[in-house]
C-alpha cells in the first residue's frame, strides 16, 4: 500500500497553476506511448509524474530527475485526450523543483545572464569569416550596452534575486 501520511494534498495547486486541469488525467498512458524520453534509462514516464503530483508525493517528486530528460517535442501535449498539457506539467515540475532545491537550477540560465546566449561565440569568429559572415553576429553579442540593460532586467526577477551567487557580472 502507498503510504500517504506525509502527502501534500495541495501539491497540484502549487505546481500546476498554469497547466491544464491535471485532475482529469485517467492514466491512459498516451503521453508515455509517444514519448521519446520514455525510451531513456531511466525512462521518463510523464503519466507517473502527473500521478505523483496528484497524490502529493513531494519527497519522491523532489528527487525525481526524469522531468529533465524531456526532449520538449510536445507529442504528449498534442495527444493527451484529457487536456492535461503534460509537457506544461513537466516544465512546471522543473520550476517547482528549482524553487525548492537550487541545485536544480540549470547552468544555462547563468550563461544567458552572462552573455545573452547558451553558446560561446569567441572561438567561431574564424569560421564565420570563412563562410562570408561578420565575425560577431548582430545579436546581443555585438551590443555590450544592450547586454547591460538585459542583465538589469533579469536582476529584478525572483530567480536572480533569490540566487544571486549564481549570477555574476
Amino acid at each position: 500500500m502507498l503510504d500517504l501520511t506525509n502527502a501534500n494534498a495541495d501539491l497540484w495547486r502549487e505546481i500546476t497553476g498554469s497547466c491544464g486541469d491535471i485532475r482529469h488525467c485517467f492514466n491512459c498512458s498516451t503521453c508515455v506511448a509517444g514519448c521519446p524520453a520514455a525510451e531513456g534509462n531511466p525512462p521518463l514516464f510523464i503519466r507517473d509524474l502527473v500521478r505523483k503530483v496528484l497524490l502529493g508525493l513531494e519527497e519522491s517528486l523532489l528527487e525525481d530527475e526524469t522531468p529533465w530528460l524531456c526532449v520538449t517535442c510536445s507529442a504528449c501535449e498534442e495527444m493527451c485526450p484529457m487536456g492535461v498539457h503534460p509537457f506544461e506539467v513537466c516544465l512546471a515540475i522543473r520550476r517547482w523543483q528549482t524553487r525548492n532545491d537550487d541545485t536544480y537550477i540549470p547552468a544555462a540560465v547563468a550563461e544567458i545572464f552572462e552573455t545573452g546566449h547558451t553558446q560561446p561565440l569567441d572561438n567561431v569568429r574564424e569560421k564565420r569569416r570563412a563562410v562570408g559572415l561578420e565575425e560577431v553576429p548582430p545579436t546581443i553579442a555585438r551590443y555590450p550596452e544592450l547586454l547591460e540593460k538585459f542583465r538589469d532586467m533579469l536582476r529584478d526577477t525572483d530567480l536572480v534575486k533569490n540566487n544571486e551567487y549564481m549570477f555574476k557580472g
Partner: peptide
C-alpha cells in the same frame, strides 16, 4: 531555451 528559464522561473 526550454531547458533554461522556462524550467526555472516563468516570469523571467
Amino acid at each position: 531555451a526550454f531547458g533554461a528559464f522556462p524550467s526555472a522561473d516563468e516570469t523571467a
